[in-house]
Amino acid sequence: MRRGNRSTVLGGTIFAVIVAIGLLAPLLATSDPAQIDPTVRNKRPGAERTVRGDDGRARAFRFWMGTDTLGRDVYSRVVYGARVSLVVGVTVAVVSAVAGLVIGLLAGYLRWLDGLVMRVMDGLMAIPSILLAIGLVSLSRAGLRSVILAIVIPEVPRVVRLVRSLVLSLREEPYVEAAVALGARTPALLVRHVLPNTLAPLVVQATFVCASAILLEAILSFLGVGIPPETPTWGNIMAEGRALFRVFPHNILFPGIFLASTVLAVNMLGDGLRDMLDPRIRKRI
């Protein structure tokens, strides 16, 4: 197998497993991820307790990844946390790619717009993305939507830059010139001749955006400025585990492993796709 293929298959497989975990979370979880139970606070991974079922019979219940300081089952929270990470990652990737594509196409093709748009993008890129995201989430009440928006804004300029540079080189291609000579109007030209050729690099870039969005969301939650703490997200579980980390490292360890594997899988997918789709763009990213 070629290098690109191997990386895509491995990354894709891990990613598919995480997606499956997210989709099947209600089936996989052993208890309600939000359920607080003071009697089982800070249990170590593998700890057991007996619960009496409705029929009165005792049943062993195992906390696979232990419990947190409020007695919530970490395993169930980690399983549900996959949902938030995936929703954020995929949404940010799609929204940034579409917004970046539209802005990039226009900036690359309409010369009068280019200067203005690129100055704004340069300015946005001059603010380190974590800081911009932190500043933006602080504006409104924290929630899924505001977190997504706060991550999209720093990511868009990177996509715009890529698309614009592609358009600038594509517009010199003979087939674009031919279309112009045949009288194609600008919108048709952009959609039919320029757009299709930007898609492969765009998909690759969107994959990397997805990875960095998942990471950013976890960082925001971890710092306590992201999604509200009662929502099970990997970042929130880790934030919760900070105080008692010395004694109970599992609260950080397990979500950390899931988070790292997901980001790793998406990055590998991106690397593989890049090598497969277009070897020429290797250097550009």
């Binding site: 990875a211 990471l215 976890a218 960082i219 971890f222 880790m238 950080i252 950390g256 988070l259 790292a260 980001v263 790793l264 990055n267």
Partner: peptide, 8 residues
């Protein structure tokens, strides 16, 4: 190194 979050 790219994939493991700094805090982990």
């Amino acid at each position: 190194g790219f994939s493991v979050p700094v805090f982990v």
